[in-house]
Design a protein around this nucleic acid. Sequence first.
DNA 1: ACGCTTTTGGTACTTTAGTATAATCGTGTA
DNA 2: TACACGATTATACTAAAGTACCAAAAGCGT
Lengths: 136, 136
Amino acid sequence: MKKTILIFGSLALSLLLLFQISKYSLIGNDFEIEGLLAMVAVVFFIVGVYLNKRSLHTEKLPEGEIDLKKIEALELSKREYEVLVEISMGYSNKEIADKLFVTESTIKTHVSNLLAKLNAKRRTQAIQIAKELKIL
Amino acid sequence: MKKTILIFGSLALSLLLLFQISKYSLIGNDFEIEGLLAMVAVVFFIVGVYLNKRSLHTEKLPEGEIDLKKIEALELSKREYEVLVEISMGYSNKEIADKLFVTESTIKTHVSNLLAKLNAKRRTQAIQIAKELKIL
DNA sequence: ACGCTTTTGGTACTTTAGTATAATCGTGTA
DNA sequence: TACACGATTATACTAAAGTACCAAAAGCGT
């Protein structure tokens, strides 16, 4: 916000400056006026593009990244979150077990607790909920 | 591309027009010149903002949207795709059946064909593959 | 009308997934 | 030290999910 005010303030100032220049320069000279107009046009066009890009970039930041704050809020343990990630990649309990070097029983336990904490009835629903919560 | 050329062309023309106006209007009048400058500044600033927003939007289009070209390439029928969408929302076969007013047997058939066409062994894997293919 | 694909439905079966319960082990904390 | 907690494993069971195979009705283009 402060930046915006500063930028617009300096823009207004530069406009005033151009006004003064146009007053005390060779007013009758067509070339001066045309050059002035072209300068103003180019400068404000560039400023417009730049400002717009700035504002759009700040809007883009909050999207598409994981929130480990909510993971803690849901009381998900590290292991449970690992399992959640594997589930979202489409692996079966047996495959996840082999990946994490544990038995399928262990994974089943983790999955069960995971579903309870996410209020999901199925692993597919858990994926959906997790993505809404930006956990995945 | 054509639009961009048109817009810049009209901008150049309007600048030339302003030049002509400044030539044949009361050149000695300071107010005219200042008004002209302000107009040019405002117009080009707005155009800059507008063009930038346009170009950024066209950059955004290719991301996050579904490609119905690949759906045909995979030979997925409408019904099968509907089922795929429901699966990705976390519904069970029975729930999907109720939603689409058919029996669970029908959904199972669709799911089986769906998995075969997507080369998936599980519905969770189907979701993952579908998202990679930008089908979802 | 005929052939083709889609959609629908069923039966029988195998495989995963998920629940419930309980026990063991390690780690950190009251 | 005792206790809570996370991670691990197991058993027994229920419930989904998925496969295979089949078959009829519907829709569509030639």
